[in-house]
Design a protein around this nucleic acid. Structure first.
Lengths: 148, 148
DNA sequence: ACAACTATTGCAACTCAGTCGCAACAAGTG
DNA sequence: CACTTGTTGCGACTGAGTTGCAATAGTTGT
């Protein structure tokens, strides 16, 4: 159950500028790719898409920009259960946290939002006296279509 | 709050033999390292420890054995929020699932067990009609000692 | 105890994700 | 418009994990 979460395009760019981050042609391209993505992209996919907007974008700039966005808490980094390779996937951090569900058979990724997830995080913050910045819950198994 | 979870040593070996998996000197060494570990180890640490028991153990055998244990659902693979590098950590799968909490400042790893985690998983299995094999929840942030 | 079958191993070479140092460059400031 | 300083592309590098292959060693049946 993915949530349709719309957002003003260019928002990421505005947020970074507000925080005094210098805006370059390459960053604009990368941010735009991340904002308009309709699925989880890995670094090399982000690179390829960004190069269509600005062919000068380099691999290392993608990684550096992803690091920047992570530090600012604007994106989440995912493994998606390593269904293909060891790399990471990225998504814009919006609204409520959600669970990523990966079918180990067909590879389908589903997102799931639950009050119980929020409640668990609240309990953890209280009982462990811990301040949560990122919480990543990934689940692997078999979806209804794949399990016999 | 880590749970002290004791286990009969050699259990992993017995379980694998039961399932018809051939037992070798190298595997015995690797399994013993994993069973007696008192903290999360990565592949290279497992290799070094295993080589003390059997110097012939090779890196590739460690990876192949970890793959075997993962396929049999006997260990869990963790990132621990990539506090140090991109590698993975491993732990024996025992009892109830727990949350891994990583302090981004001091690097301390805490484990947290909660009925709400189990409840969330049950809800997900029902509402998404999904059969869970692995569920990994990792949390990053600041522990009480590090947050000012 | 032994032969035969086949899974497993060590080795070395490889792939792939991600990082880093550095000189050239360009964004923002006044 | 010049200056300062953060950012970039490049290329070389690191480290995790994988793979093909010939040699080796568990296991099974006799």
């Amino acid at each position: 159950m993915p949530l349709p979460q719309t957002e003003i395009p260019g928002r990421l760019q505005a947020l970074l500028s507000e925080r005094g981050v210098r805006m370059t042609e390459q960053r604009r391209a990368i941010l735009s790719v991340i904002e308009t993505a309709n699925k989880h992209l890995d670094a090399s996919q982000i690179l390829r898409h960004a190069q269509k907007l600005d062919p000068s974008v380099d691999r290392s700039t993608v990684y550096r920009t992803l690091g920047l966005l992570k530090r600012h808490g604007m994106i989440d980094e995912l493994d998606l259960m390593h269904l293909k390779g060891e790399g990471h996937y990225y998504e814009r951090k919006l609204g409520r946290g959600h669970v990523h569900i990966a079918c180990l058979s067909c590879g389908k990724i589903t997102e799931f939002v639950s009050e119980r997830f929020d409640s668990l995080k609240r309990q953890l913050e209280q009982e462990c006296r811990f301040h949560i910045l990122v919480a990543r819950l990934e689940v692997g198994g078999y979806c209804s279509a794949c399990r016999r």
